[in-house]
Design a binder for these strands. Structure first.
Length: 598
RNA sequence: GGCCUCGUAGCUCAGUGGAUAGAGCAGCAGCCUUCUAAGCUGCGGGUCGAAGGUUCGAGUCCUUCCGGGGUCACCA
C-alpha cells in the first residue's frame, strides 16, 4: 500500500530533517483535489512546530526528502501549507499491470478467525414485509458481504417473531371471519392473507371499543375489556399451554406466512444461513435469569418479578421476568444471544435493528456485563434510521405502509416502461427482457436505499423517489453494460483478451481521463476496508458512483477501439476490464446485479 | 421533562479538523454520420438551523438556544 509507505517515509523525513518523532496519526495524507497537480497531498501545518519554519519551507523540505528517498515519488509542488506529491508513472503502470484482470481486486481472502453473526430482517408473522424491512434486509445482506470481502467469516441469521398476542389477533380474526379462506382458495399470497386478518381484527376491535365507550366506559377500560382482546389473550394462554387446536391453527397460518416471506426474500435476492424462531427460543432466557439471580446480579421483587439495576451504568432498572414468571422481549434476546455465543463463539454479534431500539441493545449488553459474561462487548447494534414517507412515519393502521412486494412489482413495471421507451430490448428475447427489468428495477431500489448513510433517517417518496438517471443504480448498471459492449466488440475485432493481458503501458504518458479512472480504481481496497470497519454500504455506493462518473467521462472523451496505437488501445481495453470488474464486485457488495446489455 | 439523534442548494443526499462546501433531481442552454444519449458538457442556485467558544484552520470538536425525529412499558 502506497499510503502506508508514504506515512512511514514522512515520519522518517520529519525525524531526519527536524530530529522529532511524530505519530502516524499526525500524518494527514489525503488525495489531491482535482484542481491541483499531484496524487497525494500532505498537510504540513502539524509539522511546523517541529520545523520552526514556515509551512511553505517545511513542505519544500519534506517534498525534497521524499523525492530523494522514494522512487515512487517523482515530483512535488507546494501551495500554501499543502504539499502535493506526484506519484511516478512506473508506479501507476505497475499497479495497473498487476491488477487490471484480477477479479478479486480489493477483496481480502478469508481469514481463519471467529465469525461475525449478523442478524437482520427479524419479521413478525402477522403481516407482510414493508419498506422498513427492505432497508433492514438490504443493509444486513450487504453488510454481511462487505464483512466477507474483508476476510471475515459471516453467519447470516434471521430471528422470526412467530408467537405472541399479535399472532393470536390474526388467528382469531381468521377463525371468526375467515370462512376457511386459504392462499390457494383466494389467490392471496400467504403473508398478505394473514396480514389481512390482522387488519380485520384491528377494525373489529376498534368497533367494540367505540361501542363500550358509547355505553359510558372509559377509553382505557374499553381497550382492556373488549371481548375480542380478551379472547385473543385467552388464545395466547392456550398456545402457551400447547392446546392442540390452537397450535395446529398457528402452524397452518404461520406456514402460509413463511411461504410468502420466502417468495419475498427470493425476489429481493437475499438469504440466510440460519433461521431462528422465537417460539423455540423464547424460554431460553429464563435459565440465564436464574443464573443471574444466584450470582446476585439480579434481584427479585416481592411480587415475584425479576429486575436488574443498571443505575451504575447511567441506565434505569429493567424488568427481566414478569411477576407471573413469563419472559419479556429482553429475556428472549438474552437467551438468543447466549445461544449464538455458545454456537459460534463469534467475533461480533451484529444486530441490524432500527434506531428506536438503541436503548434495548444498550441494556442487553449491560446485562451480560453485570452477569460477568466477558463477551458482552461483542454485541453490536447496527442501528439504522427510519424510512419516512412524505406524510411522515408509516402507520400500518392508517394504511400508509409501503408493502415490499408491491413496491418491487412497481419497480419492475417502471423499469419495463422506461426500458421499452428507450428501445433497449428490441432484440431481446422475452425471458431476457423480463430478467433485465428485474435487474434494473431492483438495482434502482437497492441503490437508492443503500447509498444513504445507515445511521440517518431517510425519506422515501413512492411517486418520485426512484429515478433511473444520475446517481442511481441503473446509471451504474448502464456504465457496466457499456463496458461489456466495448469488450464484446473488441473480441469481435480479434483484439484478443490474452493480447490485452500481455501488454503493459511502460513509457506511455497517461491522459488525464485515463489517469483519473486508474486513480479511483486504486482507492477500491481502501474503501472496502473502510466500509468493513464502519459497516456502511453507503461508502461503497458513493464510491461506485464516482468511479462510474469518471469512466463515463473517459468513455465519452477518448476512443478505445479506433485507437491505432496498439499499446494505448490495449491499455484502454484493460482499463475497461478493470473498471468492469470493480463495478461488478462493488455492486455485488450491495447485493445488486449488473447486466451484460441494457 | 431526562437521555439519544438529526438540521448542508427548491427537493433527495455526499462531505477521516484542512485549499474556493459538492453530487443528483428539478430549471435553462448545448452535444448522437463516431465504442450504447439510462450518457457527456455548461449555466443559475448556499448566512452549512442560530449565537458563542477551542484551533494556524470549524459544515466537522465544545457550550447554549431553536426546530424535527426517537426513546424512557410487567409491548415487541
Amino acid at each position: 500500500m502506497i499510503e502506508k509507505l508514504l506515512e512511514i517515509k514522512i515520519i522518517e523525513a520529519v525525524r531526519a530533517l527536524y530530529s522529532t518523532e511524530i505519530l502516524p496519526t499526525q500524518v494527514q495524507l489525503q488525495k489531491t483535489r482535482k484542481d491541483f497537480d499531484g496524487d497525494y497531498t500532505i498537510v504540513v501545518f502539524p509539522f511546523t512546530k517541529s520545523s520552526r519554519k514556515s509551512p511553505e519551507t517545511t513542505a519544500n523540505d519534506i517534498g525534497t526528502y521524499l523525492v530523494e528517498h522514494m522512487e515512487q515519488v517523482s515530483a512535488f509542488n507546494v501551495i500554501k501549507g499543502f504539499l502535493n506529491l506526484v506519484i511516478s508513472g512506473s508506479y501507476w503502470n505497475g499497479f495497473y499491470a498487476r491488477n487490471f484482470s484480477n477479479n478479486k481486486f480489493g477483496f481480502v481472502p478469508q481469514m481463519d478467525s471467529n465469525p461475525f453473526v449478523v442478524e437482520y430482517s427479524s419479521p413478525n408473522t402477522n403481516k407482510p414485509l414493508h419498506l422498513g424491512h427492505i432497508r433492514n434486509n438490504l443493509l444486513g445482506f450487504s453488510v454481511a458481504r462487505i464483512l466477507e470481502a474483508n476476510g471475515h467469516k459471516v453467519i447470516r441469521v434471521n430471528l422470526v417473531n412467530d408467537r405472541g398476542i399479535h399472532i393470536c389477533k390474526s388467528m382469531l380474526a381468521w377463525k371468526r371471519w375467515g370462512d376457511g379462506e386459504t392462499p390457494s382458495s383466494s389467490g392471496i399470497k400467504g403473508d398478505h392473507l394473514v396480514g389481512k386478518y390482522y387488519v380485520i381484527f384491528d377494525q373489529q376491535y376498534k368497533k367494540e371499543i367505540e361501542k363500550l365507550i358509547s355505553l359510558g366506559i372509559s377509553k382505557d377500560e374499553a381497550a382492556k375489556s373488549a371481548p375480542l382482546i380478551l379472547e385473543a389473550q385467552e388464545m395466547l394462554r392456550k398456545w402457551e399451554a400447547n392446546d392442540d387446536e390452537i397450535i395446529s391453527l398457528w402452524k397452518l397460518m404461520n406456514g402460509w406466512v413463511y411461504e410468502g416471506f420466502e417468495q419475498t426474500y427470493q425476489t429481493m435476492g437475499i438469504s440466510f444461513d440460519k433461521t431462528y424462531y422465537e417460539s423455540k427460543t423464547y424460554l431460553l432466557g429464563k435459565s440465564l435469569v436464574d443464573e443471574g439471580l444466584q450470582a446476585g446480579a439480579l434481584h427479585r421483587r416481592a411480587d415475584g418479578s425479576v429486575w436488574i439495576d443498571l443505575s451504575s451504568d447511567g441506565l434505569d432498572e429493567k424488568l427481566l421476568l414478569r411477576s407471573d414468571g413469563t419472559s419479556v422481549y429482553m429475556t428472549q434476546d438474552l437467551g438468543t444471544a447466549q445461544q449464538r455465543y455458545n454456537e459460534f463463539t463469534p467475533e461480533k454479534l451484529v444486530y441490524v435493528v432500527g434506531n428506536e431500539q438503541e436503548y434495548h441493545f444498550q441494556v442487553l449488553a449491560k446485562v451480560f456485563k453485570h452477569m460477568g459474561k466477558p463477551w458482552y462487548d461483542s454485541i453490536f447494534h447496527l442501528s439504522y434510521g427510519m424510512v419516512e414517507l412524505p406524510e411522515g412515519k408509516m402507520k400500518s393502521r392508517e394504511g400508509t405502509v409501503v408493502d415490499a412486494d408491491d413496491l418491487m412489482e412497481e419497480m419492475f413495471r417502471t423499469a419495463e416502461i422506461t426500458t421499452r421507451e428507450l428501445g433497449k430490448v428490441d432484440d431481446f428475447s422475452s425471458e431476457e427482457a423480463v430478467q433485465l427489468f428485474r435487474i434494473i428495477g431492483l438495482g434502482a431500489l437497492k441503490y437508492f436505499i443503500l447509498k444513504v448513510d445507515p445511521k440517518k433517517n431517510m425519506l422515501f417518496n413512492p411517486t418520485e423517489s426512484i429515478d433511473f438517471n444520475g446517481n442511481t443504480g441503473p446509471f451504474i448498471q448502464y456504465t457496466y453494460a457499456r463496458i461489456q459492449s466495448v469488450l464484446r466488440n473488441a473480441v469481435q475485432k480479434d483484439f484478443l483478451p490474452n493480447e490485452i493481458g500481455a501488454l503493459q503501458i511502460d513509457n506511455v504518458e497517461l491522459l488525464p481521463q485515463e489517469k483519473e479512472v486508474l486513480r479511483i480504481l486504486h482507492q477500491f481496497p481502501g474503501i472496502v476496508n473502510e466500509a468493513g470497519d464502519s459497516l456502511s454500504p453507503a461508502l461503497i455506493a458513493n464510491y461506485i458512483y464516482e468511479l462510474a462518473c469518471e469512466f463515463n467521462r473517459f468513455y465519452h472523451d477518448i476512443t478505445i477501439l479506433k485507437e491505432t496505437d496498439l499499446v494505448r488501445r490495449n491499455f484502454r481495453l484493460g482499463l475497461c476490464t478493470f473498471t468492469g470488474n470493480v463495478i461488478k464486485n462493488a455492486m455485488w457488495l450491495l447485493g445488486i446485479d449488473v447486466p451484460q446489455r441494457m
